[in-house]
Simulated assay, not measured.
Amino acid sequence: MSKSITAEDLNVYYGDFRAVADVNIEIAPRSVTAFIGPSGCGKTTFLRSLNRMHEEVPGARVKGDLYLDDDNIYAPGVDPVTVRSMVGMVFQRPNPFPTMSVRENVLAGHKLNGTRMSKSEADDIVEKALRGANLFNEVKDRMDRPGSGLSGGQQQRLCIARTVAVEPDVILMDEPCSALDPISTLAIEDLIADLKEDYTVVIVTHNMQQAARVSEKTAFFNIAGVGEPGKMVEYDQTSVIFNNPSNEQTERYVAGKFG
Rank of each mutant, 00 (worst) to 15 (best):
T6N: 11
E8W: 01
Y14Q: 04
G15R: 07
D16E: 12
A19G: 12
D22I: 00
D22V: 01
N24W: 09
N24I: 09
P29M: 01
I36M: 10
G42C: 03
K43D: 04
T44V: 08
R52F: 05
V62I: 15
D70V: 11
Y74E: 09
D79A: 12
V81P: 01
S85G: 10
V90N: 02
P98T: 09
V102H: 02
E104T: 12
E104M: 10
V106D: 07
R116T: 13
A129D: 06
A129S: 13
R131W: 08
D141M: 10
R142S: 15
D144R: 14
Q154N: 08
R157Y: 13
I160F: 08
A161W: 05
R162L: 05
T163P: 05
D169A: 14
I171G: 11
S178A: 15
E189G: 02
L195V: 07
L195F: 06
D198Q: 14
T200L: 15
Q209E: 13
F220S: 00
M232E: 00
V233L: 02
E234G: 13
Y235W: 06
V240K: 08
F242H: 03
N243I: 13
N244D: 15
S246C: 12
Q249E: 12
V254S: 07
A255F: 05
G256Y: 09
K257P: 01
F258V: 11
G259Q: 05
G259N: 08
